[in-house]
Nucleic acid binder design. Structure first.
Lengths: 235, 235
DNA sequence: CCTACCGATCGGTAGG
DNA sequence: CCTACCGATCGGTAGG
């Protein structure tokens, strides 16, 4: 079984899967295989849970033999951590990108929140969204050291929500204390992983609309805001 | 291997752990042991997850030898299901009890919701609250048959929320569509299992207050409702 | 990345 | 409910 990757650029132009600054380990042509492994692991961890997933399952899902995952990752734990870190970095990147668009700063706080909620739902439920759900629901399976490391990424992510929530609180559009509101709001969103089914029921846009309606007071500072049916702010 | 059945009730005063109408199985003095096993299992399943918990762990936590749990339960799966069913029945009982008090019917919808939220938080986070969290976070570990059976209990529980949410929607205190609102609200509450720490931070009452402030619009039909700091409706 | 393998652990059982 | 045990599975490794 050979990797379906670049027949070696032989010399200087080494292929690096992404800007991920993982260790100083040179990744050669097996960068792709590594990513396939990660994707297979994420999918299985999400569906069956970490402890119930076998490294053999993962190997098979990636088209490998049972011992091969350990060529790419030194342990099952390392695989789990890699899945979570990849998920969290990607989520952070996307949230950063969305909030650093110039137009973002000009939005009303409520519309800024809509951007955050939209990104968050897409991270959790959009295409290729196995990594973050694994992180959300398998954190306790991590050894303490890595658990703490991940905690810092999570804290960064949550911090990005605070200015918006603070503005909304000052606005009168959000009555609950900001800290608790953040926990409750993210909880409501995160729980969607348990029940959302892309193939039936509500769409991601309806979901986002419902969340906005649920969390925000229509009675802002001055103007009367429309509810459920107003649409996306940026795109 | 013996089932946990009746040595004939020999004398009249048989000890029954609780009013739980479990099968027709007479439980003798080992009813207590069975319950200890259940409680130990719930605690461990909650902390480490089902797949990562060993039947040996559970036995040890209940002060037994490694094979002994199988005298009370025919399999590890059966233990898990018993934990979940016990949790769900108890939760249903409590919610029923709270909503069938005569005073309940006279409450404003917002105060009825506060009752539901209070009960729910207590079920999730109060003393002895390991059973329902296990159900919430380990449902995927159940075989399909039992998963479906549990689903019916859950549906009952969720149904109790609908009239209140519908009234609030009609009221104008809840803008989001009722079905999605229910999913988002229960999600926000359920997620508290992941972060709530009874020993520090907010109290359950503060939490409940924050949730009410977050979900409901202050602009009801006529009167202006107070926010965060109003207190419990019934007790 | 495969082949071949090991040591440990785990759910479960027989028999009392 | 304990003792003693089995068969299967699992994470991981040596060596190429």
């Amino acid at each position: 079984m050979k990797p379906d990757v670049a027949p070696p650029p032989s010399d200087t132009t080494v292929k690096r899967p992404r800007g991920r600054p993982r260790k100083t380990v040179d990744e050669r042509d097996d960068g792709n295989r590594r990513l396939e492994l990660l994707a297979s692991a994420a999918k299985l961890f999400r569906r069956k849970g970490f402890a119930a997933t076998t490294t053999r399952d993962i190997a098979a899902a990636a088209g490998m033999q049972s011992g091969s995952p350990f060529y790419h990752f030194k342990s099952k734990d390392a695989l789990l951590y890699a899945v979570m870190e990849e998920g969290m970095r990607s989520a952070l990147d996307r949230l950063h990108a969305a909030t650093q668009v110039p137009a973002y700063a000009d939005l009303a706080p409520a519309d800024q929140l809509r951007v955050l909620v939209t990104v968050h739902f897409d991270v959790l439920l959009g295409p290729g969204s196995d990594f973050v759900p694994v992180m959300l629901y398998e954190a306790r399976s991590l050894p303490p050291r890595q658990h703490k490391a991940l905690g810092q990424l999570i804290a960064q992510y949550e911090t990005l929500w605070l200015p918006v929530l603070t503005a909304l609180h000052a606005n009168g559009e959000l009555h609950a204390p900001v800290r608790l509101a953040r926990l409750l709001i993210l909880g409501a969103l995160n729980w969607s992983v348990q029940w959302f089914d892309a193939k039936k029921g509500a769409s991601l846009q309806e979901l986002t609309g419902a969340a906005m309606d649920l969390f925000l007071k229509p009675c802002g500072t001055d103007q009367n805001l429309p509810s459920s049916s107003d649409q996306s702010p940026i795109n």
